[in-house]
Design a protein around this nucleic acid. Structure first.
Length: 292
DNA sequence: AATGTAACCAACCGCCCGGGG
DNA sequence: TCCCCGGGCGGTTGGTTACAT
């Protein structure tokens, strides 16, 4: 009623994002912060649907995103969380703040699902055990979800939705530097087409040394271009010292996450209590026990 | 070298939910 | 109270690359 539509679908561009579009989007969000996606195409002149802008930001441009190989620790967390939460990728991603739900989903579908399938085939000789384990986990999840819902209902907002803190995303020019690779170069060879950009976006691990080499220069270039505060790429690497609390700090403000309360506490406590050490270093799940 | 297939991943699609008019 | 829209989410697709034959 009275509201303009998100996008009229006419003249809306689709397909891979170009570096130019990325820069426009990033610079806009740098000024206004994420949110109000409907206004983004209008205010920036981007021929993109608001959804597309949001996705591009959350899945690729958002700072603090780690791309490339998943560590064994991350794999275990995903497997554990998937067993507990099911395919609620956004919820799972909230426990892996450096990874996007899309990334986790892709990784699950392309890697972990196959692994688990193999494991389950190996266990098909004892279906009762598998069934029982799944049923128990489901029950546990349901109980915990109820607890969490109650907790959320009883506690006021832990976060300030309207508060935008530039430092939360300004702290990372790394991702943006990558997208700029080649685009800002002065040699003809470095001028990228859309296709090349698409290629650059993919396989970030390939030619990593070259990329790493360029990242610093590009980060500096971005600093001067957008006035980003100085960024130490090591800041984005939280995986070495990840803790649930950090997750809530570094989590994108545009992506509401479940409070890291009961469920998370339980997740970590459960492991710690049963193992007496890092719960994810030796996950106790019936069908996953021989996974690694 | 050419062709076929598998793997990967960015982006799109469609549904759902909550909020505003 | 109903309707519409924006935003969020999960599922799926399509393009590209890597690898095998």
């Amino acid at each position: 009623m009275g509201r303009p539509p998100c996008c009229d679908k006419i003249g809306v561009k689709k397909g891979p994002w170009t570096p130019e579009e990325d820069i426009i989007l990033v610079s806009y969000i740098q000024q206004h912060g994420p949110g109000n996606w409907r206004a983004v195409p209008t205010n920036t002149g981007l021929l993109r649907c608001s959804k597309s802008c949001r996705l591009r930001w959350t899945n690729y441009l958002r700072p603090g995103i780690k791309r490339g190989n998943f560590t064994e620790h991350e794999e275990r967390m995903i497997i554990h969380l998937q067993a507990l939460l099911g395919n609620r990728w956004a919820a799972i991603a909230s426990y892996l703040p450096q990874r996007t739900d899309n990334d986790i989903k892709n990784y699950w579908n392309t890697h972990l699902k196959k692994k688990l399938k193999k494991i389950q085939e190996g266990q098909s000789t004892n279906p009762d055990l598998v069934c029982r384990g799944q049923w128990e986990r489901r029950l546990q999840t349901d109980i915990q979800m109820a607890k969490q819902a109650l907790c959320e209902a009883l506690s006021p907002e832990l976060k300030q939705p309207g508060q935008y803190q530039a430092s939360t995303y300004i702290s990372s020019t790394e991702n943006i530097a990558k997208l700029l690779q080649g685009w800002m170069g002065d040699s003809p060879k470095s001028v990228v087409t859309d296709d090349q950009h698409s290629h650059n976006n993919k396989k970030p691990n390939m030619e990593s040394t070259k990329e790493e080499k360029n990242d610093m220069e590009l980060s500096e270039a971005l600093d001067s271009l957008f006035g980003f505060e100085s960024f130490d790429s090591s800041n984005s690497d939280l995986s070495q010292s990840f803790s649930p609390d950090e997750a809530s700090i570094s989590q994108d403000e545009s992506k509401p996450q479940e409070p890291l309360s009961l469920l998370e506490k339980w997740l970590f406590d459960e492991g710690a209590a049963s193992q007496g050490k890092d719960c994810f270093s030796d996950i106790k799940l019936d069908e996953h026990v021989n996974l690694f």
